Amino acid sequence: MDVLRTPDERFQALPGYNFDPNYVEGLEGYEGLRVHYVDQGPDRAPRTFLCLPGQPTWAYLFRRMIPVFTQSGARVVVPDWLGFGRSDKPVSDALYSFDFHRDMMIALIVKLDLKNITLVVQDWGGILGLTLPMDLQDRFSRLIVMNTALPTGDSLGDGFQSWKDYVASRPNLDCGALMQRACPQLSEAEALAFEAPFPDQRYKAGVRRFPQMVMIEPGMAGIETTKRAQKFWQTEWAGESFMAIGAKDPVLGVPVMSKLRKVIRGCPEPLVLEEAGHFVQEWGDQVASAALKHFGDAS
């Protein structure tokens, strides 16, 4: 397997981000690959917030939420998917699949022995992450869900198809420029932090693959898993939930999230951020504070 590792100097002096890296190597089925995760707060904290980023981001996206969660006395773990952030990046596009990512995250949760987890998800963090609790039910207790979906073979509309085509036509997608367009309030240095993991096009196989993997047609890999997950959230989920929606998201905004809310048993009325777009974590301090207040964790 041809694997790239982003040089450490690419991650120096990132604005608003001073979290030390942590690594796991040798996860079962992923021998020879190194997975990065942020790990803040006490190891023996009563709760763990497991924050899963999506396309094309990495742990940097949660920089505004991590301090709010840790101030509540919790542990916060933010992994980077393989192909993203400070995790290793296999070069072959064909290697990346729904199960490749999902099985890695399950292995990481078990390896770190995470318990009493509040799952925090957005974008592919949700497409994958929302399928985890049904197979690790004793480890998950709460959910914070932002702009995402549980696709089961149906179209997500013209907006998503345009995005899929856009990425397919740009094998060297400029992630920093994309983030600055989506979140105009970002400084140039903050936007560049989202491009930091990718010195050149060879590092971007994972970025290229995620849009092509979304299950918008019957028979695609992952559909049977998301169907099982939908049933779990509808009939078996007994934990607390909190939903935040970036209203300016043209693909996974209020209409899609309203449908998802009906799937999640007991999900309350969402926090709708009228000025936020797809990357809700850029309003993360507000979202995290509201979620903690909802859960009764706020001081």
Rank of each mutant, 00 (worst) to 15 (best):
F210K: 08
A238I: 10
S241V: 06
F232H: 10
I264K: 01
E217P: 00
G277Q: 14
P268K: 05
W237A: 06
D249W: 03
A276M: 08
A205S: 11
L271I: 04
G253A: 11
A229R: 12
I245R: 07
T225A: 13
A244S: 10
S241F: 02
V263E: 04
I216P: 00
E275Q: 15
H278A: 10
A238E: 11
E275W: 13
T225P: 11
E269V: 11
F232A: 13
F210L: 15
T226M: 15
I264E: 01
Q234F: 00
P218T: 14
Q230A: 14
E240N: 14
G222V: 07
V256K: 13
V254C: 01
E224P: 04
A276V: 04
Q212S: 07
G206C: 04
F242D: 06
G222L: 01
R228C: 01
H278Y: 15
V263H: 00
C267M: 12
E275G: 15
A276F: 06
T226S: 05
E269Q: 14
M213R: 05
E275D: 15
R209W: 03
K227F: 02
P255W: 09
F242Q: 08
I223F: 05
P250Y: 02
V272K: 08
G246S: 11
Q230E: 14
V256T: 09
G246W: 04
A247T: 06
W237E: 05
P211V: 10
V251S: 04
V251M: 09
M220W: 02
R228M: 03
K262I: 05
A247H: 10
R265C: 13
G206D: 04
S241T: 14
E269M: 08
I264H: 02
E274L: 00
A247W: 08
H278M: 11
L273W: 05
G266S: 10
L252N: 07
G246D: 11
D249E: 00
D249F: 01
A244F: 05
R209G: 04
M215Q: 15
P218C: 07
P270F: 00
E240W: 02
G219V: 10
V251C: 12
M220F: 09
P268T: 03
R202D: 09
Y203P: 08
G246N: 08
E240L: 06
E236A: 12
F210H: 15
M220L: 14
